[in-house]
Amino acid sequence: MLVSVYRYNPDKDEAPFMQDIEVNIPEGRDLMVLDVLGLIKEIDPSVAYRRACREGVCGSDGLNMNGRNGLACITPMSEVVKNNKLVIRPLPGLPVIRDLVVDMGMFYKQYEKIKPYLLNDTPPPAIERLQSLEDRDKLDGLYECILCACCSTACPSFWWNPDKFVGPSGLLQAYRFLIDSRDTATAERLAELDDPFSVFRCRGIMNCVSVCPKGLNPTKAIGHIRNMLLQRAT
């Protein structure tokens, strides 16, 4: 199979280029893209990429495979390979450090901005802050985010304003804390988001939903935040 890999070594290359590598795929097996990268690494050890858990939990190996973002470790070849060809590029929109490794600084900065931790100004109880089952259910579909950046780097609004638009991943997390019954800073959190860029750059094109490897729905969360902002203003 022909695999075309995005290559860029700041020490040697003036500009990034695509390197075609012929990889022998074992007969009758549907390898994950990460396994294909492993085979490439045997052919050319200089190819750089991030990986850790290899089972879709750590979120290290977010890549653009045949034009679509996803986690290489849980994306089978059968899902992305077209005409026996696979094009592997780094996540779009973030600065490339080397080959398939991107600088996630912008992405983390947006995550930091939404204060991803519980804020509660009441005195802490002796054991723990309790939550009803119904309130806990509201966190499902929000807390599972692994911060792989597949969604935010598939979002044109984030490409053009990575410094001002929080992005799907950050907003999903923002909603996770807005809706948490144990958090008392809802008003402050909403005030932070109430500007033309942070939330409202979302145009609802749902690229985030279509690529999320965990099947989460940032568009819906953003819709909820919008409604909360609207209610706050009226």
């Binding site: 995005y6 034009g67 679509r68 094009v87 973030l94 490339v96 600088d103 279509s210």
Partner: peptide, 14 residues
């Protein structure tokens, strides 16, 4: 200056 992978012709849009 680090390059950015943003060649829009290379992406598949839903």
């Amino acid at each position: 200056k680090r390059p950015v992978n943003l060649d829009l012709t290379q992406f598949r849009f839903p």
